[in-house]
Simulated assay, not measured.
Amino acid sequence: MLRVLLGDHQLSLVEALAEAIAAESDLEVVGTAARADDVLRVVGSRPVDVAVLGSDTGPADLASLGAALREVRPGLALIALADHEDIVALVRAVRAGFRGWVHKEAGVQELVDVVRAVPRGETRIPPVELTRVLDHLLEAGAAATRSGPLDELTSRELEVLRALSGGVTRQEVADELDISVNTVRTHMRRILAKLGVHTSLEAVVIARRAGFR
């Protein structure tokens, strides 16, 4: 059973989605909210697996809210419910941990499919938007590579980044380098900080631009 939180300033939409999602045998709506502070309160006080959040859940912007939620509950799956196409907002949301992006005019079944998929580790962003996100990240990676950011990494950090660029998991990196997964995470946090990026995907883009495979 996946426990779902719905947040959006349009309460009528939230209530309609809650009713539709509650009809699914494997989904349970554990909370609804119209504002960011209410979303944070629910996530901080109840077990929540998936948060579906409108792009106008004020007063916080979507990326800031997502980052705050992941601080409270690191494993929370984040899905954006968007009523407009804004590549900058989408990129910021992806950097904050959102792995689902559903337009408000999409059918309920599409949203339900995304709610089930994202907790499984899938990314569900419409192809056109995903292409634009990747283009944006590649451009950012190319600009960063031209400034030589990899020069700031230690030899061990380069080993970790090189291994991840080969498409392996963090556990496989830990096994290959004979270190713990927690140590890999620590190295990744330092790598992201030095490269000035927010996700492992962006770091890998920079590494591959630099010739890592």
Rank of each mutant, 00 (worst) to 15 (best):
R70A: 00
V72W: 01
V72E: 08
R73D: 12
P74Y: 04
A77G: 11
A77L: 03
L78W: 06
L78R: 04
I79D: 02
L81H: 03
A82I: 07
A82P: 00
I87H: 12
A89R: 15
L90T: 08
L90Y: 07
L90F: 11
V91K: 12
R92G: 00
R92Y: 09
R92F: 10
A93I: 07
V94I: 10
V94G: 07
V94R: 15
V94T: 14
R95P: 11
F98G: 01
R99G: 00
V102P: 00
V102M: 11
H103T: 01
K104A: 11
E105P: 00
E105D: 14
Q109G: 05
Q109Y: 13
L111Q: 00
L111F: 05
V115M: 05
V115W: 01
R116K: 11
R116G: 03
A117G: 07
A117T: 06
V118C: 00
R120W: 02
E122L: 12
P126W: 03
E129D: 13
E129V: 02
V133Q: 03
L134Q: 09
D135G: 04
L138M: 13
L138S: 09
E139V: 14
A140Q: 14
A140F: 04
G141S: 07
G141M: 01
G141A: 05
A143E: 15
A143D: 15
A143C: 07
A144G: 12
R146H: 13
R146Q: 14
R146T: 10
S147P: 13
S147G: 12
S147M: 10
L150K: 09
D151H: 10
T154F: 15
S155W: 09
R156K: 14
E157M: 12
L158T: 10
E159C: 02
V160R: 01
L161D: 04
R162S: 09
R162M: 04
A163P: 02
L164V: 02
S165D: 08
S165V: 00
G166R: 06
G166H: 06
G167A: 09
T169S: 14
T169H: 01
R170W: 03
Q171E: 15
E172N: 09
V173E: 05
E176Q: 14
D178K: 13
I179Y: 06
S180I: 01
